[in-house]
Structure formats: structure tokens, C-alpha cells
Design a binder for these strands. Structure first.
Lengths: 275, 275
DNA sequence: GGAGCGCTGTATCGTATGTTACGTATTTTG
DNA sequence: CAAAATACGTAACATACGATACAGCGCTCC
């Protein structure tokens, strides 16, 4: 079974003429980056002409050079998806059902936070901590509990935190309360819910700042969102995992709490200096 | 110090107009593969026009699109060279608020699962998958969303799953519906709620099987519980973390789903053999 | 409420890129 | 050793890609 292009090359290396073999070897040597560059660069690096490169990829079974590059990219993307799983996949002794699930979840979290900068989290936290506006939270079928969880915590440390629950008609009516200064936190992973998209669009039209928690494929709500948090959701289960988004939510809760405490301290100092 | 393009984007994300920010977010979400494709594909994925993508890369300081792609490739190549450099957010200089939180959470999960055997999880899953009885779920002030999350999933794959919400008097009345065959899943971390303890005790007296999700200090409900899952909750924040319990919940959801599917398949086979 | 600015998309253009045809060199075979 | 076949490079070609000019629109700030 041949899965990667590298194996494919190794397989057919023997049947190739000299020039194409040089192409193959230089590709293997700098795998796969050279293949992502232009034909001209590839040919220069291999010390052959452009047509030789094209004949080389044709021999591998690709219709044209772009198709070859797409395959390389897909392969790379698959590698990047599961960083740790590739290198340190202990065949899970005993075939336990737990380890793969836990490992995947931990990977998801690392991957999610790798794409999430301190800066971005700080920006969102600052927005959530801004007490001039109200904070609304809402989620989809399976993610609504996350909205509830976040709302429960935020409501303790500041006023004007509302979780939108119940029927669609219920929260749609709340739109009139929303304005520019307000923040709407939406949790939406696939399958994305139309009702949420419509709601987000209307809120956006009213100038509401939207913070979106979604998966790596990005809910259509991303169009309207001021801040987008893309969490990894893939796990060896029939369901998607919201664990990474949960951890991001907890991180934000912590950051907002810290910020409000800091502001509170500043207020106290200001008040004292006024006396 | 800014080393990667991802950081560069995060740094300037705040100063970007809406369209370019969408470009930035889609790039971060599928980093860095989207950036290696053509402008047309990138723009389509982000839902903006080609010029917006070009303005986006220009704002990042690149002279043209190919130069931007080269940078991404170089970065990728460097990563592939040394898999060890796969560290996440570089030690977040200046006392970043993210890493400690994430690290603590990951540690919590590892610790939680270390004290949790496959056997124990399998037992609980089997109990939850037993369709002869009903399943009730309830949580405390901050953990009730976890109960909701679990209920939302379990309710899809089997009947008779009830989340107990609202006032204490509401669910106390549901006690008459509960019997020996039924399971009550309770989430309770400190500070432990008296109302939940009282409820658990009465349910226990009626012979209900209690599955308790709690913290490492064990809620008093542990006295009455058939199964106890003790999750680590300590994080560098003003709040306790429920993330570990969340992951256990997801693991159980997956296990129950698998089990019901297996039983379903078995039933089908039995039915066919009867013909 | 009006004027100015900035952002975004449409349409067009030039060019770099992949592709192909053809001639020469090199190897293979009778 | 001759002749054919295969391999390789040069050069011309067409396409698709990135770049740019311009106009419409919304937003902010007087």
C-alpha cells in the first residue's frame, strides 16, 4: 500500500531515466518543500530542465504540475493536523479505549492554543471586561452548555451578562436591547445552525461586537465576527469534541476576572488619590 | 520579538479593517496551508475578494504575494527540520497569561485519567448504556452546564434521558420517578451545594445508582455514589477548572455511543438469525 | 446633516508560469 | 559499427495568476 508521495517515488525510482532520477532525489532530499515551489526553481535545484520536471511528475501519475502540488499540500496538511500523534503514538497497550480519546483531546488543545496568541485573548478579554456594554451569550444545540458555563462565571464578576436560552423567537426579541457597545458571544460548531447565523447577522447589523467560538472549518458566522476562535474538534468518537473550546472559555473567564480585579484596584487607588 | 508570521498577524490583527481581518482569521484557522494556495482560493475561503488578500499581505510588510508564500514555506521548512521546535506559544515572554493556564489544564487531565482506569469508565458506560432504566443528570451552580452537555448527547442516542433544571423544588418532585434501575449523574465541585447533597441522599435511599463527577477533595455526595470520578481542578486562576471533568464526560459519551451501536448491531444479528 | 476619508469589490492588464513542439545528443540493439 | 529509439534541452506558446486602476459604499468626524 502506497500512501505518501515519497513512497511512490521510492517505488518507481528504479524505472526512471537519469534526469528524472535526479529530480526525484532532490525532491526526497528537501521533501516536500521543493515540490511546492515553481517548476523553474525545482529544475534549477535539480540541475535539469523544466520539461524533465514535468515528465517526472507525469510519470508519477499526475495530470499536471498543479495537481502534483495539491497532493503534496494535502499530505502536509494531514501531517500538521496531528502533530504529536505522528511522532509519539504508543500503540496504546492493551487497546484501551481511553488513551486515544485523551491523546486526541490533548492534541486538540495544544493545536488550538498554538493558533491563539496571548494578544488575541487579551483583546477579547478586554472587550468582555469593558463594563460600558452588555454581554450576551448563546450557543448551538450541543454548545449551548458552553455558553451557559461562561455566562455563569461572567455574571458573578460583572453586571449585564445575559445567556440567551429557549426558543429562537425568545432571543430574537432581545435584539432591540443590543447596540454598538455590546458584545455577543456565540458558540457554533458544525453542523452550523441557520438560526444562529441569521441571529448573528442581525446582531452584526446593529453594530454588536461578535466573539465567535467555532471549529477549524469556521462557521459562516465568522463573516460577521469581530473575533474568531477556531478550536480543534476531531476525536476518535462519533461526536465532535468541544473540550478545546471549553478550555479557551475557561482561559478567557480567568483573564476577564484578572482584568476586572486590576481595574477595580486602579479605581480604588484613584479614589484614594482624590481624597 | 516576532519570529513567525502567525505572531505577526496576531500582533497587527487589531489594526486591520474588517475584510483583511477575515483573511487573517481564515489563515490562522488553517495555518499555514491556505497561504500556500493561490490568491483566488485564499480569497474564496475567506469570503473576500482577491485584492483584499493582496492588501492583507501587503499590510504584513511583504512586497508581493510570492514573497509572502516564500516566507510561509521557509517557516514550514524550519518546522519540519526540527520536530522538537514544535513548541507552542514561545515561552510567552513577559509573563504571558495563556501558557500557565493551558499547561495546568493539560496536567490536570493527565492526572485525572491516571487515576481513572479503563475498567471503571467501561463500567460506568455500561451502566449508562443500560436501557432498562432512566438516566437523570444534574449539576451545581457552575457545573450544571456540564450536565446539560452530557444530557444533550445522551438524549440523542437513547430515550429516557432527563436533565434536571430549575428550582430545587422542581427536581425534588422528580424523585418519585426514580428507582433501582435508574442512574443519576451528579456534577458537584466545591463549594459543594447542600441542596445537591440532600437530593443525592434521598435518591440513594430510593436505590438510585449515583455517578458522581467531583473534584479531588470529593463532594460529600461520594458517600452515596456508586461511581466517583475525581477530576483535578486547580489552575492559576481565580476559579476552579472543570475542563478535566468535561473531557471525562466526553469520553463517557463516546464510550456509551460505541456501546449502544455495538448492541444495536448485535440485536440486528440476533433478529436475523431468528428468521 | 454634510463633507471627507477609508475600505472593499469589479474589471482590466501585464506577466510569470506551466505546457508543448521540435531538434539534438546519447544510449541501445541488431 | 550502423541505425533506431529513447532521453533531454531549447524555444515558442497559451493560460492562469497576481497586480493595478477605479468606482461605489459606508463610516467617521466636523
Amino acid at each position: 500500500m502506497i500512501s505518501s508521495i515519497a513512497e511512490l517515488i521510492a517505488d518507481r525510482l528504479g524505472t526512471m531515466p537519469a534526469g528524472e532520477r535526479r529530480a526525484a532525489q532532490t525532491l526526497i532530499a528537501n521533501y516536500p518543500m521543493i515540490g511546492l515551489k515553481t517548476v523553474a526553481e525545482f529544475s534549477a535545484a535539480a540541475g535539469v530542465s523544466s520539461p524533465t520536471i514535468l515528465r517526472f511528475v507525469a510519470r508519477l501519475g499526475f495530470q499536471n504540475y498543479p495537481e502534483f502540488q495539491s497532493s503534496l499540500q494535502d499530505e502536509l496538511a494531514a501531517q500538521l493536523q496531528s502533530p504529536a500523534t505522528r511522532t509519539l503514538n504508543p500503540p496504546s497497550p492493551g487497546g484501551g479505549t481511553v488513551s486515544p480519546m485523551l491523546e486526541a483531546t490533548l492534541d486538540n488543545m495544544r493545536e488550538t492554543f498554538r493558533h491563539l496568541s496571548d494578544r488575541q485573548l487579551a483583546d477579547i478579554a478586554a472587550r468582555l471586561a469593558d463594563r460600558r456594554g452588555k454581554t450576551f451569550l448563546i450557543g448551538g444545540r450541543f454548545t449551548d452548555p458552553l455558553a451557559r458555563y461562561m455566562a455563569a462565571h461572567l455574571a458573578v464578576i460583572q453586571p449585564d451578562v445575559f445567556h440567551l436560552a429557549g426558543q429562537e423567537s425568545m432571543w430574537r426579541d432581545r435584539l432591540i436591547d443590543m447596540g454598538k457597545r455590546d458584545v455577543l458571544v456565540i458558540f457554533d460548531i458544525r453542523r452550523y445552525q441557520d438560526s444562529l447565523v441569521r441571529f448573528a447577522e442581525k446582531a452584526h447589523q446593529r453594530g454588536v461586537q461578535i466573539v465567535l467560538f467555532t471549529d477549524q472549518w469556521l462557521s459562516p458566522i465568522a463573516r460577521f465576527a469581530r473575533h474568531v476562535i477556531a478550536g480543534r474538534t476531531a476525536v476518535p468518537s462519533a461526536w465532535d469534541s468541544s473540550a478545546a473550546l471549553f478550555v479557551v472559555a475557561e482561559t478567557l473567564i480567568g483573564a476577564v476576572t484578572r482584568q476586572l480585579e486590576a481595574e477595580g484596584a486602579k479605581r480604588i487607588r484613584e479614589m484614594e488619590s482624590l481624597r
